[in-house]
Amino acid sequence: MYVSGQVFLILLAFLVSWALTGVITKHVRSARLMGVDVHKPDRPRIPKIGGLAFTASYSAAMLLNWLMGGGVVELVLVVSPLIAAAIGFLEDVRELNPVVKPLLLLLPGIPVLLLSAYNPYPVIPLVGGIRITLLYPLLVLAAYTVVANAVNSVDVLNGSLVLSTLPVLLLLAAVSWLMGGETPALASLALGASLLGFLRYNWYPARVFSGNVGSNLVAAVITTVAITARIEVITLVALLPHILNEFFIIVSMGGLKSGKAFAARPIRVVRGMIVSSPRLGDPITLVRLITLQNPMGEASVSKRMALLSTYSSILALITYLLGGVRLR
């Protein structure tokens, strides 16, 4: 596709996301679709399905891209994220069992496997090409559930989902493009533009949350881009803050459990400031570690999450550049 066509799709994604997020913010009032912003003194109730807006804008842009002569890669970049978003929406309207949820999140990987949109010979930086034809399909399935939980675990503050994933999406777009993956690069930029449109309403003080529908879509796009552009290890490095956060939570809570089932919280809100919990046994999270030394406002914590994500994305770029080095 011509560059002008790609720019049109990216602009379309931004505008549709902006407009639809505004509609959701103003018109969604059903109690089931509202969530409490627990970090504000007055604990306002706001719509929690804002992710539907950027799911629609991203899907529309990538569907148009597929209709204009796309193949298997273009198709899975629409279908897999949509399956993940549908599972997220299901969780937004009814609580899912914390063991069933990771199993359901294996489903977005199935179109990738059925349509053979993967290459079981990944190129690992410093190692080179390896052949894992039996293991790779299992890793594809597992990747969706791991990344979905990791991305979901940072969607805890106003703007944190967008700010912590934008640097990763820009990195993925650049590296995909450098490796000749035009469509994965377009998908990353279309999602980035959609998230910017959503940020207008999600930035502090937020008037809408993304919900699981939004975080699952973001995670599934990142995973599908990593698989189709063959940049798995580079994506792993870019997502280090997200993966570390998920890992801290799982280990400090003793397994896959719903956060709602625990009285212990990693942070407290004191006079509008986020304060790290002083208790040893409380869960360890990224936000808790960021606020360990000093209490901070919610927006400041989100900006620091963006800084960490930018730093890990730079490390991912260095990892990509190391890809030219072969030790064997």
Binding site: L244, L308, S312, T319
Partner: peptide, 9 residues
């Protein structure tokens, strides 16, 4: 956290 991410990488 910066140190942690660097050591992890």
């Amino acid at each position: 956290l910066i140190a942690l991410i660097t050591i992890a990488w």
